[in-house]
């Protein structure tokens, strides 16, 4: 039962994250700005997190690696969001 629920959550999470990244990429293509690049990359880390979960479920690497990767991706995501906010402010002043 737990495995069925986990597979379902992984599936829904991966597809939803994929859609969000697709929308972000389309927006990035329009705007071609650094803040949009950073926001897209931050959202891509959510997709990467979901894919790491799928890889673990498929036994592609041990649980410890999965754990480290998930938290490394959290750190990357926070860094990207902070950078996006910072560059947006600088861009706004220049305009």
């Amino acid at each position: 039962m737990a495995t069925v629920l986990l597979s379902l959550l992984l599936g829904v999470g991966t597809v939803a994250a994929g859609l969000v990244v697709a929308v972000a990429l389309a927006a990035l293509l329009q705007r071609r700005s650094v803040p949009y690049l950073l926001v897209t990359l931050a959202l891509a880390t959510v997709l990467a997190r979901a894919l790491v979960g799928v890889a673990l479920a498929l036994d592609l690497f041990p649980d410890q690696t999965h754990h480290t990767l998930e938290h490394a991706l959290d750190a990357v995501m926070v860094g990207l969001v902070v950078a996006a906010v910072y560059t947006a402010r600088r861009g706004g002043v220049g305009e």
Binding site: V23, A24, A26, A27, Q30, R31, Y36, V39
Partner: peptide, 8 residues
């Protein structure tokens, strides 16, 4: 895409 850019 339009609403995403509005939000961002």
């Amino acid at each position: 895409v339009d609403r995403f850019t509005r939000l961002v």
